[in-house]
Design a protein around this nucleic acid. Structure first.
Lengths: 223, 223
DNA sequence: CCTTCAAACAATGCATACATTAATGCATGA
DNA sequence: TCATGCATTAATGTATGCATTGTTTGAAGG
């Protein structure tokens, strides 16, 4: 209904480039001038330029005057920034959800995602686990219905996506994270505002610590 | 040093348009097609387009396919979204500042801004008061050194700017806000993390309530 | 007088053109 | 060999051109 009636080239360029970046096919450090990207995408510079500006706003790319677009690495410092924001915002969203009892359908969906995460963990399917993790966080945000918050946080998720994917296999199975998701969901369902907030906050703080310590122990200054 | 070595037209268009919007010379609801804006700014459509895209990302404008750029009003719902985010983020920044004791120079500056606010209140100079208020919030953010947070929150400040300016004169002198700023500053200086957080949170929650109730009592659905 | 339809108009999305200017490479000279 | 400077190359920033398509106007018909 509200979807693009007219698929525009800018949109196409944006989506394709973003995908290449997130899937690490255009890894951090990759650099290319506009004409080259335009050629690669089979369109003129104009829509490419607009797509790049958008990607720059979202923190995935930097446009350097005579050198083209640079795919940005995400440093430990970036992670700290990002996780600090997530730690402040997501628990607020969870608390608000606990307060205003979401509709059954949405809760149902969150439940399904949580189950998917639990079974992925049981099966040792890390990709499925990461996918469920991502979906849980995004769904929760979407349910909260603060569009500005949702959009912003989603760009942060995108920024850390690569880092999460690579660290995923450098650590123990994410049992604790899985338990925490279940716990958060329970608190929301129970309508316990403060516990929902606290749990989520703890979840984020632990995740941040874990991620940063992995980066440190593997000497990964950036991803 | 880091300033624009090359003032570009995009930048110029962006700054001028943003200024017109914030100063209410292009009021909410104002609408104009790209060619008209380009003419007004004395340049071609290309840089105007890029500037408009940027303003759209920042939530000041909406680009409607065949009708041009529309200066967005800020509704009560928008306010709620924005203040919810501010309520989550700013107290975090304040708490973090209290924790890691900022350098004397910065504190000095915050102190000066707070004094300016207090004297503006005493003199009944509302414009000076609003300016000090804005500077306090922005300075505090800047001191916290989380660029993503700073940039994002600054765009939110911009979005509510008009609303704040008009409600400024529809209410009692902002004595409480002034006291709260002082209080927050004291807690930061004292290094009391929890009190800094709590005070700031209360400050924001009260401000949001106040603003929304003014909108309601004056029947202003949007600004 | 109101509705309907078509033709004219106009704005966008995109491609292309072009001037400016930084980066690069090469030749020259120490 | 290495530094210096000039010529070449190429990327950006901006302007312009153009096809598509939504909007509007006005005339004809009910």
């Amino acid at each position: 209904m509200l979807s693009e009636l007219k698929p525009t080239r800018v949109e196409d360029a944006y989506l394709r480039l973003k995908d290449e970046i997130l899937q690490n096919r255009m890894p951090p450090g990759f650099q290319a001038p506009e004409p080259e990207i335009a050629l690669h995408l089979g369109m003129s510079r104009t829509p490419v330029r607009e797509a790049l500006i958008r990607l720059e706003n979202e923190g995935l790319v930097r446009l350097i005057p005579r050198r083209g677009a640079l795919v940005l690495p995400v440093s430990a410092g970036d992670m700290r920034e990002i996780y600090e924001i997530l730690t402040a915002l997501e628990p607020e969203a969870a608390a608000s959800l606990a307060r205003k009892k979401p509709d059954a359908g949405s809760l149902q969906e969150l439940e399904a995602i949580t189950l998917a995460m639990e079974s992925a963990l049981a099966n040792g399917d890390l990709d499925a686990w990461a996918d469920a993790d991502d979906r849980f966080h995004r769904k929760l945000l979407a349910m909260h219905a603060n569009n500005r918050m949702t959009n912003f946080v989603n760009t942060l998720f995108d920024q850390v996506h690569r880092a999460r994917m690579t660290t995923l296999r450098l650590r123990k199975p994410p049992e604790q994270s899985t338990r925490e998701h279940r716990e958060i969901l329970d608190h929301i369902i129970a309508g316990d505002v403060e516990k929902a907030r606290k749990s989520f906050r703890a979840h984020r703080e632990r995740a941040a610590d874990e991620l940063l310590s992995i980066l440190e122990s593997y000497r990964l200054p950036a991803l």
